Amino acid sequence: MSDWLADTRDSYDTVAVSYADHTRDLLDGLPHLRAALRLFAEEVRGPVADVGCGPGTITALLNELGVDAFGIDLSPAMISLARRNHPGLRFEVGSMTEPLGDPVGGIIAWWSLIHVPDDEVPAVFGHFREALRPDGLLQLGFHVGDETRLKTRGYGGHPMRVHVHLREPERVAEWLREAGFTVEARWLLGEDGAVLFARRG
């Protein structure tokens, strides 16, 4: 496992409980993100992989919207929380830097690509495309900007060591097009967030 992956796994293992507490009701005050999730649920066909699922909140919400969603996360502590909080759903430890397994109708990756270095992103998008069925839907959420920050302290004040990559939507869209996706929509969320909808070509 590369250093950045190990750092990311260990950091989220450390903050898992505090992160789950912090994000549990986060969508209550974010109507545009709730709308993006509902639109994804309406348009996707077939099972969905929630990649970087954390404590499973989005996975569970998708299931409430009628989607057969399961979660994948690099952090064993996050997966343990997700399984405990949502015992009827499927969660597994895994990485977006590796093939995702069985074909799916959709992939959602909300603010999990932010720790992946630029030179690894094309391979990640390649794995996403391979995992998606023809016409499969991908939704990405990420921080907007053009810089990388080292985060050394996180949720609950616990120590972390993760690089957070802020990216311009057009740059992410270009990587998607190069990987064989058609970008269908780009939503800007205030000054510092974006959601992209893309479909496997």
Rank of each mutant, 00 (worst) to 15 (best):
M1Y: 04
W4H: 04
L5C: 06
A6I: 12
A6D: 13
A6P: 00
D7W: 14
D7G: 08
T8W: 02
T14E: 14
A16P: 07
A16S: 10
A16V: 07
V17F: 01
V17L: 11
H22W: 08
T23E: 07
D25P: 04
D25S: 11
L27V: 01
L27E: 11
D28R: 12
G29I: 03
L30K: 15
H32W: 09
L33W: 13
R34E: 15
A36G: 15
L37D: 10
L37T: 08
L37E: 13
R38P: 09
L39D: 15
L39P: 01
L39Y: 03
F40E: 05
F40N: 05
A41F: 03
A41S: 12
E42R: 14
A49W: 01
D50A: 02
D50T: 02
V51Q: 01
V51R: 02
G52W: 02
G52R: 03
P55C: 01
G56I: 03
T57D: 15
I58M: 02
A60S: 12
L62F: 04
L62T: 03
G66I: 01
A69Q: 08
A69D: 09
I72P: 06
L74V: 07
M78G: 09
M78L: 08
S80Y: 04
S80Q: 15
A82V: 05
R83V: 07
R83T: 14
N85Y: 10
H86A: 08
F91R: 13
E92Y: 00
S95P: 10
E98M: 08
E98C: 08
E98Y: 01
E98W: 00
G105T: 01
A109L: 01
S112T: 05
D119G: 01
D119Y: 05
E120P: 00
E120A: 15
V121M: 10
P122S: 02
V124L: 09
G126N: 08
H127I: 04
F128L: 02
F128W: 03
R129N: 10
E130C: 08
A131K: 04
R133F: 00
R133P: 06
R133S: 14
L138P: 12
F142C: 11
G145R: 01
K151Y: 00
T152G: 12
G156S: 06
H158F: 13
M160H: 06
R161A: 14
R161L: 15
V162W: 08
H163F: 11
H163V: 09
H165L: 14
P169S: 09
A173T: 11
E174W: 07
W175G: 13
L176F: 09
A179D: 10
G180I: 06
T182C: 09
E184W: 00
E184F: 00
L188C: 11
L189H: 12
E191V: 00
D192R: 09
A194D: 14
L196A: 11
F197H: 12
G201N: 09
G201F: 05
